[in-house]
């Protein structure tokens, strides 16, 4: 009697597992795709084989120059302001040379350079460690080089935050909505429990617009295709000495900094 019950439960369990597995497979094959429908990029979209940015620090003169690029990003992307560093979310921000390029500071640097704020954002690396470690492909690299974050898929494990050597990723420790000063109704907010970061304004590139910070920077931030020898970024890089953050880690960061020479001092 007891063996019969046992056997029954075993068989029932096994068949339930098979049935569930089979259902998943069938669902996958017979996906309800619309036959006639298809997807395509927007006609006027800006495209590249590898997007990159050159930040010409010589052109950041006043505090206002920084504010403009940071505020425009914050407002169009519905970035909350929690007013404390623990919950902080940032896509683009500033810090001093010493903290932007740790280990690269020199003794007796020009004082202006030492105190100058440097603009930081996601480096959209060639070999992004965040993408390598993500267990759900919620963060992934697009064909044009942009490291993208799919907030719908993110499970909030924060492995990417441990992996990013640039501190470019922020986690929503709590619901950000009450802390957004003025919502931009054309862009989503985020929910608690997901990781977010700069996306090089993919939503603007799709419409044929430059990233918002670039547009607001008055030429201090240059954006373009690194594989195109005639692009603005390539011109800037071939006529100036530039540095990148932590290139020795092999991540291949795509944000270049022009520090400038004597006139900066």
């Amino acid at each position: 009697m007891s063996i019969d019950r046992r056997e029954f439960l075993k068989i029932a369990g096994a068949s339930a597992i098979f049935a569930l597995g089979g259902m998943a497979i069938v669902n996958d094959i017979v996906k309800d795709n619309l036959e006639a429908s298809q997807f395509s990029p927007e006609p006027g979209a800006l495209t590249a084989r590898k997007w990159a940015m050159v930040i010409d620090m010589q052109k950041f003169k006043t505090e206002d120059d920084y504010k403009k690029v940071i505020n425009v990003c914050n407002s169009i992307h519905n970035i909350p302001d929690f007013g404390n560093p623990k919950d902080e979310i940032k896509w683009i921000w500033t810090d001093t040379f010493e903290h932007t390029f740790p280990g690269q500071q020199q003794e007796f640097m020009p004082e202006s350079l030492e105190r100058m704020p440097f603009v930081m954002l996601c480096n959209h690396c060639d070999n992004p460690p965040c993408v390598r470690v993500c267990p759900t492909k919620a963060t992934f690299k697009r064909k044009d080089g942009i490291v993208m974050q799919d907030m719908h898929r993110c499970i909030g494990c924060r492995f990417c935050m441990a992996a990013c050597p640039y501190g470019s990723r922020s986690f929503n420790w709590r619901d950000p909505r009450p802390f957004i000063k003025k919502e931009n109704p054309e862009y989503p907010t985020r929910t608690k429990g997901v990781v977010e970061k700069c996306t090089f304004c993919v939503e603007r590139l799709a419409k044929g617009l430059m990233p918002a910070c670039v547009e607001a920077s008055n030429g201090a931030m240059i954006f373009g295709d690194l594989t195109d020898p005639n692009s603005e970024v390539r011109k800037a890089l071939s006529s100036n000495y530039s540095i990148r953050r932590k290139p020795e880690l092999g991540t291949g960061p795509n944000i270049y900094y022009i520090i400038g020479g004597a006139d900066n001092a």
Partner: peptide, 11 residues
């Protein structure tokens, strides 16, 4: 979000 194709061509 994933493919960057932001235009839907309806049936």
């Amino acid at each position: 979000v994933r493919d960057g194709n932001r235009v839907y061509v309806a049936s």
